[in-house]
Write a protein that binds this DNA or RNA. Structure first.
Lengths: 264, 264
DNA sequence: TCATGTGAACAGATTCACAGCG
DNA sequence: CGCTGTGAATCTGTTCACATGA
């Protein structure tokens, strides 16, 4: 099952912390908006507010890039836009392939923010022959047989996987074999890739589950009781099985033993 | 422009670290797969491999939930599925509204992993009257006028925003005013929400930019030179502007001054 | 004997608070 | 004087390594 290959070694880039890199696009977006409104300079306080972070963090982030501000004044918007774009590698053209043109793949193909900022959809690829040739967002879908050829000819290094989970690892392997070294994975699977290949994961279901966790906690706080979170509709989706060979003895879950409410 | 409201206070849940919460869905998925294959028990090592994390981390994560394993043996799969589901609040039903039924909204509505795991699409909402009544993924789209009514009647506490960026904040405000306390935001904007409301952001463009950063770094390492990253097609999307009132003097960007290659 | 559970060491990220400079 | 830039303190998360107990 292809284990033993690491999952994002996160090789501490050129001194720029990963957390900072993840915020640069946020700053860039805020700066671009300012730029469009012809705002010449901005303070760390203002920009931080626009980007939804605190100003100390923003200043520290920028300090990793160099000293691009002017004390007593702030940052020059245009200059900063350029510096961040360059740092992120957006001053060059990045051809991208999207594999799996279902609902999601089609939505991604049509996504505006995609085309902007130096990313260019080099090809849409789907395994279904019925899709081949059909234009999606103005781009004709190509059959997956063409995958390797496209990647090599266009020098594609970024691939987007929007296939069903079942085939994501195969697709990933083919992408990597053909030369792709960065993958954005929308399929709900853990992908194994060799060292040197970056994978980022976008998973709707995980995000919702995290929200549900916090939501549940909020509900539990209103009344300080434990269960009884929803208004009334309680539908336990999973039965609480006894642990193997359990004698029903000690078990130190943080809020008591197996919950009182059990399905009939 | 609606500042002053915080953006995810991350109120350190019930002792369970945020990073751990974010991994629980991953473990749950791996465990569910094992469960379907009727695997009775699993070791931290095996499960960690399946979830793409290291085993020490997994054990520490589980230790926050309680002692659910058996020394010398491992974890009981079914029992752990139940405990994690409960911890995440997935043993109850979470009605969700999706606002903005464009390409992306439609894709989300049809997303399988949505319906599973206790999440139920309570309504699809769009501002375009032409969409009203049209079934998407089997659910008829409702007009945004109905938004408040739906949220209150169905007790919806989770909202998904898939609108254009321009209206996302307004939609967010309406959702919050109507009682939604968790928001999954697909629009490329920073949302301001009052305390007590959680926002999670999913942003394709940001993910791609992060990948591009690392990709660029890789390219820069192969040859130890600086620019010249792509094969040949270099298209600087942004001109490097001089800083305000600059005399072209000292500027300590980490790899030298303004880049040598300037657009004509 | 084996794999869990966890203190302790470490690493990374955030925040504080203020020196330094325009 | 105001705002940047940054050392130092703090907080959060990860990894190590081993005592513990089935």
């Amino acid at each position: 099952m292809a284990t033993g290959r690491t999952h994002r070694p996160a090789t501490r880039s050129r001194g720029i912390p990963e957390a900072t890199v993840a915020r640069l696009p946020l700053y860039l977006r805020a700066l671009t908006a300012l730029s469009e409104r012809s705002v010449p300079t901005v303070s760390s306080e203002e920009l931080a507010a626009a980007a939804g972070v605190n100003s100390a963090k923003l200043r520290k982030d920028f300090s990793y890039l160099g000293s691009y501000g002017t004390r007593g004044v702030g940052y020059d918007v245009e200059y900063l836009v350029y510096q961040i774009s360059r740092e992120l590698g957006l001053t060059q053209d990045w051809p991208v392939v999207i594999v799996g043109i279902g609902n999601l793949g089609a939505a991604l193909a049509g996504y505006g923010g995609f085309a902007s900022r130096g990313f260019r959809v080099a090809a849409l690829i789907d395994a279904d022959p019925a899709m081949t040739g059909k234009p999606v967002a103005g781009i004709p879908v190509q059959h997956s047989d063409e995958l390797e050829k496209i990647i090599e000819e266009d020098g594609v290094s970024i691939g987007v996987i929007a296939t069903p989970a079942g085939v994501a690892q195969q697709v990933c392997d083919r992408l990597v074999a053909a030369g792709v070294t960065s993958i954005l994975n929308f399929a709900p699977t853990v992908l194994s890739v060799p060292d040197g290949v970056d994978v980022r994961k976008v998973d709707l279901s995980i995000e919702l589950q995290i929200l549900a966790f916090h939501e549940q906690r909020k509900a539990g706080e209103e009344s300080n009781a434990e269960a009884d979170a929803g208004a009334e509709a309680e539908t336990p989706a999973v039965a609480p099985p006894a642990p193997r060979g359990s004698t029903g003895a000690t078990r130190k879950g943080p809020d008591g033993d197996v919950p009182a409410v059990m399905p009939a």
